[in-house]
Simulated assay, not measured.
Amino acid sequence: KKFTYITGRTNTSTSRDREKGFVEFLIQKGIKAVIEEGDYTYEAGYSVAMRVLKKGNRPDAIFCANDIVALGVIDAAKILG
């Protein structure tokens, strides 16, 4: 029910289109996503995930703009247990 989406670079049309499609789909399902800015790098995925997952109100799912960001998220999640 609580989704976080880590974007790519916000100054690219590809990133904006991916985010728009993801958010529009969730809206159709009655779900609001929290958008976190990234930049298509492992380091961005890792640092955003560390910040998001250390909060008391963790998301149920984290979606990423690409696989490299997802790898950073996975490693952060492993470290935090």
Rank of each mutant, 00 (worst) to 15 (best):
Y5N: 03
I62S: 07
K54C: 11
F25M: 11
G38S: 07
E43C: 00
Y5M: 06
A44L: 05
E37H: 12
A61S: 07
G45D: 02
N57E: 15
Y42P: 00
G8Y: 05
G30T: 04
L26I: 02
V52W: 02
I79F: 04
N66H: 07
I79C: 05
N11R: 03
R58G: 01
G21E: 00
G38T: 02
E19L: 15
R16A: 12
L80T: 04
K2N: 14
T10V: 09
I31D: 03
K2D: 11
A33Q: 09
Y40N: 12
K1W: 04
G45L: 03
N11G: 04
I74S: 05
I62L: 12
G21S: 09
E36R: 15
D60I: 13
I79A: 12
C64W: 01
Q28R: 14
G30F: 01
I79H: 13
S47I: 08
G72I: 01
R58K: 15
S15D: 06
A76P: 07
A76L: 15
D60Y: 07
E37D: 10
E36T: 13
L71R: 10
S15W: 03
D67G: 13
I79G: 02
I31H: 08
K20Y: 01
S47G: 00
M50S: 13
E37G: 01
G8Q: 03
Y46S: 07
G81S: 15
Y42E: 05
S15M: 05
R9L: 09
R18M: 13
K2Q: 12
D39Q: 14
V34W: 00
M50N: 07
A76S: 14
R16G: 03
K1P: 12
T14R: 05
L80H: 08
V73T: 04
R51Q: 12
V48Y: 01
I35E: 06
F25N: 14
I27G: 08
C64K: 06
T4H: 04
T12P: 01
T41K: 09
D60M: 06
P59C: 08
V52D: 07
N66D: 15
R9H: 06
T7H: 04
G56P: 12
K55H: 11
A70H: 02
P59L: 01
C64G: 02
I35F: 04
L80M: 15
V52K: 05
D75I: 03
I6E: 00
F63S: 08
A65S: 15
I68K: 06
Y42L: 14
F25A: 14
V69D: 00
F63N: 00
I31L: 15
F3T: 14
G56L: 07
R9P: 15
T12M: 01
A77G: 14
T4N: 06
K54W: 03
F25W: 15
G81T: 11
D67P: 02
G38E: 00
I31M: 13
A61K: 02
I79T: 10
K1G: 08
T14S: 08
M50F: 03
I35L: 08
F63V: 09
